[in-house]
């Protein structure tokens, strides 16, 4: 139910760690660091998509299962928007 949100959390912690590592080893302004950040973001988006597809392709449950499925899919959607939004600083 929280797969998308978990990946979102991993994404922003990961971006912070990548930026900090870039700051130690070279410079946060270096293009390489930004490409790694972009790659990481795409990976997270792909994982969210996989999670959403897995949830969506399961047989539609009834009762509480349906409710959990709705929350999970909405969470995955919000997470995808969040990851995309938080990747935009790489463009500047």
């Amino acid at each position: 139910m929280t797969a998308g949100l978990l990946i979102w959390a991993a994404h922003f912690v990961g971006l912070y760690l990548l930026a900090s590592a870039a700051d130690v080893w070279s410079s946060t302004e270096a293009a390489a660091g930004r490409w790694v950040g972009l790659g990481f973001s795409l990976l997270c988006l792909a994982l969210i998509a996989v999670a959403a597809i897995v949830i969506a392709r399961r047989p539609v449950p009834d009762g509480p299962g349906l409710w959990e499925r709705r929350v999970a899919l909405t969470g995955a959607f919000v997470a995808a928007v969040g990851v995309t939004w938080q990747t935009t600083p790489l463009a500047f």
């Binding site: 922003f12 971006l15 912070y16 930026a19 900090s20 870039a22 700051d23 946060t28 302004e29 660091g33 930004r34 950040g37 939004w85 938080q86 935009t88 600083p89 790489l90 500047f92």
Partner: peptide, 13 residues
């Protein structure tokens, strides 16, 4: 680092 600040700014919004 500026890029970290940008990330946190985006997350805060």
């Amino acid at each position: 680092p500026q890029i970290s600040i940008n990330y946190f700014s985006a997350a805060s919004m």
